[in-house]
Nucleic acid binder design. Structure first.
Lengths: 236, 236
DNA sequence: ATCATAAACTGATAAATGTCAGTTTTTAGT
DNA sequence: ACTAAAAACTGACATTTATCAGTTTATGAT
């Protein structure tokens, strides 16, 4: 069955399906079709909130385009960015599976289209398709491993080392364009909220990196000049 | 089938099964019996290593008694303790599921008996028993949520706040005895490796907490005198 | 119970990072 | 292109935390 809802405004899962890390890659054509048919799609502008920490969500979202940041709100409302989601990534599934309230807020940082899929659909797929269940578990385990690494980094590395590491992470996640410029635009405050430091510290350290010819700065554009140098600073 | 291997030296899963957070609680009696039959058990003395970061493990362990610490080794060999495992907890399952090398080392801190279960057994159970699969996913999701909380804490709270929080965590995980003494014995260095700070800082801060009548210290025994006071410091 | 060893503790000092206040530049929306 | 608002930047200073070196005490194996 091909979903009759498919039209120009509702992108087909097929599009995301090409993405290599797509979670639905183990679904049968029929199962994928069902997801495609059941889902709802929305466009979100930069700054929009998809869901908020502490709220109940009954389904999860799949990012079709754009970039979403996931963060927790800590002391004095200071954000701690936990991760980003881009095309093919799913967000909110943790809350559906563990039946807990959302533990992060997700906010659009680059205009995005997201598909909403009912929690029941996820549960049904897990029961019907063990390969999909394994895929999902592996995703969760991978995220858990990364979280553990991040804990160790924040606990043991200096702010300088962590900032270098975050730049490398951003490079791996969002790539560089042909001029070696990071393909994501973040404010200094957002960088600080990833690193876990004060905005002023990020500003000062970026300037240092620039002076040391490791990077070049033009507004929010960050050009990577010396990758090995950054890796050395980050202890990689 | 009741496993013929069961004898005094090999504890039955039934014993752990009473533990409320036991992961195998959704198994059918037959499935539990299979696990019980297939498993191998070993006794480990304090200080023994169960498995090591970076090594391949083909199965996972279930703690029957004792306490195990899981840590990553960071800069200059400094440990970062990620979590503890006690009766009924399973360790190493993340590596089995994600098919990655172990991302932590696990070392016994209180003499322990652990059962070893083949990875295949876990995979089979996931495929056979969707309820168990869900249970396991929920465990992973819960750990992931906790990891995210921890990231935010380390990134935003002071060492003082984190130490108070760790004392509260230890209280919740290992309880207090009738004299309000923490039922786990950790060195100052281990506390520092949980908090993510220097040993000397933990020593000084514990002294401060003692002076402020929040706790009492006798060697490694920590007696909680003022729980609300600690919660206030930890921002809870 | 003893004893060697490891852990706990103390003080002095250095280094990293946070905070605050004010100025300049950039960004995003009309 | 214009412009208000937000973000980026700078410098001075405060605070926290780490480091180092040395002393005392507790631990756990025999």
């Amino acid at each position: 069955m091909v979903g009759i809802k498919n039209n120009q405004s509702i992108p087909s899962c097929e599009e995301c399906h090409a993405t290599d890390h797509m979670i639905f890659k183990d679904l049968t054509p029929e199962q994928l079709d069902n997801v495609n048919y059941d889902k709802g799609c929305s466009f979100y502008k930069r700054g929009n909130i998809i869901f908020q920490e502490g709220h109940r969500i009954n389904g999860f979202y799949c990012v079709h385009s754009g970039i979403v940041k996931m963060y927790k709100t800590g002391i004095d409302g200071k954000e701690q960015i936990i991760r980003f989601a881009k095309k093919g990534d799913i967000i909110g599934y943790r809350s559906v599976l563990s039946n807990e309230l959302a533990c992060t807020t997700s906010r659009v940082i680059e205009d995005a289209t997201l598909c909403y899929i009912q929690g029941d659909t996820l549960i049904t797929l897990i029961k019907e398709n063990p390969a999909f269940a394994m895929q999902l578990m592996q995703l969760t385990c991978k995220e858990l491993g990364e979280a553990n690494n991040y804990i160790t980094d924040i606990a043991q590395k200096t702010v300088r080392e962590r900032l270098a590491e975050i730049l490398l992470l951003l490079k791996d996640t969002f790539d560089l364009d042909e001029n070696q410029v990071l393909q994501i635009s973040l404010t200094r405050e957002e960088l600080a909220n990833m690193v876990g430091t004060a905005t002023e510290s990020v500003i000062r350290l970026l300037s240092e990196f620039k002076q040391d010819k490791l990077i070049e700065l033009q507004g929010r554009k960050i050009k990577i000049l010396n990758l090995p140098g950054l890796k050395k600073i980050a202890n990689f």
